[in-house]
Simulated scan of single mutants.
Amino acid sequence: MQRNKTLLQSTLCGDNVLILNKVFEKKLITEREYNNLKSINKEDVEGHVIKLVDKIMNKGDETCQDFLHLLQTDEDIKTTYPKLKNIQLSVTRSLPLPIQASSSNEGGIQPNGLCVIINNETFMDGKVRRGTNNDAESLAKVFSWLNFRVLMCKDQTKDQMVQTLTCFASLRDLSQLQQLDVKEWSNDVFTDLQGDPQHGDAFICCVLSHGTKGVVSGIDSKSLSIQETITTFKATGKSPLTGKPKVFLIQACQGRQMQRGVLSEDLQADDSQSPFIPEDADFLVALATVEDYKAMRHPIDGSWFIQSLCEQLKERCPRGEDITTILHHVNNQVSLKEGFIQHDRAKQMPEVRFTLRKRLVLSPQAGSP
């Protein structure tokens, strides 16, 4: 964008209102920024466009990349600004290239990878996490639509969870899968495992359980550290997942406190390259709530976090949005929800952290999930 800034600005002056509206529709700017740009006084058309382009550039590489993609793909924009085709808009090396989680060969489309769900519903102390099966099915539907092979392990103790994670991290000893009673999502139901699983371009792990600060619980109420869960998949010279994105979605409380609502007006490194990557690279962990707080789950509809995640994936994956962008929308949607527990007003704030080195884009199959 820096190289072509002057050309872009002069070209987009042809209809400054259209490009402003398109940028807002794609959520590259906030509503407040949109209103501010729209109501600028004492500026000519060129001045409006200059301020818009500067605003985009100040938002960083990812927003710049999304803006260039918009200019290249939107039919209204291509029709309105035909001179854009004469401008070199290809993304330079300084911008992160996306990991497109989609593989194919002459035999047809292959699964992007595995989505493994650990779904703890009934605990040994008699407690039942009502609504969790709805979460599991929602995840299975959306990730199978995103061309993942979806497997589920139900009601596991802490040791069984460790065994499951260790098995799927390497897939070297597949005989363990029978002991773990792994089920597979097929024809809208969980059924017996259909053949040996294999790793693909990405790995998704969903843990649905109780939890406290920094841990999730087995059905025996023993705690498994979330950090230990992630460490199982660290990059090694022998791991089939080294260099591939590994996404962990954790639906579990992280404490006993209740989130309260507060009033708000408005809800670089060097370029040297190495053949080695850090062992902690390529992870994304999305937690239903921040530390010390509860995560809300409806006994019929399922949890706020998982249901919002599935909704946003269905809406935004067909648009080509990457997983971190989608999780920003999940964070916002969940933060706006409100419930009551024993007459107390309840809020929830998910947390996302990642070491992904590239954008992860999940490509859906044709049709609805």
Rank of each mutant, 00 (worst) to 15 (best):
A295S: 12
L313P: 05
F305P: 00
C317I: 06
C317S: 01
E311I: 02
D301N: 15
S303H: 02
M296T: 11
M296H: 04
E315S: 12
E315H: 14
S303V: 11
I306S: 12
P299C: 14
G302Y: 02
K314W: 07
M296N: 06
H298L: 08
H298D: 09
L313Y: 08
S303L: 01
D301T: 12
A295P: 03
T324R: 13
M296E: 07
E321D: 14
C310T: 02
H298K: 14
C310R: 01
A295N: 04
L309Q: 07
I306V: 15
R319D: 14
E315Y: 06
M296I: 03
W304R: 02
D322N: 15
I300D: 07
F305A: 11
T325N: 02
D322P: 07
R319H: 09
I300M: 05
R319N: 02
C310Q: 01
Q312K: 09
A295W: 05
I306L: 09
P318I: 05
S308L: 06
I300W: 07
S308G: 12
H298F: 03
I323V: 03
C317F: 01
K294C: 07
L309Y: 04
P299T: 15
C317Q: 00
S303N: 02
A295R: 00
W304V: 06
R316K: 12
M296L: 15
C317R: 00
P318E: 05
E315P: 08
E321K: 11
P318A: 02
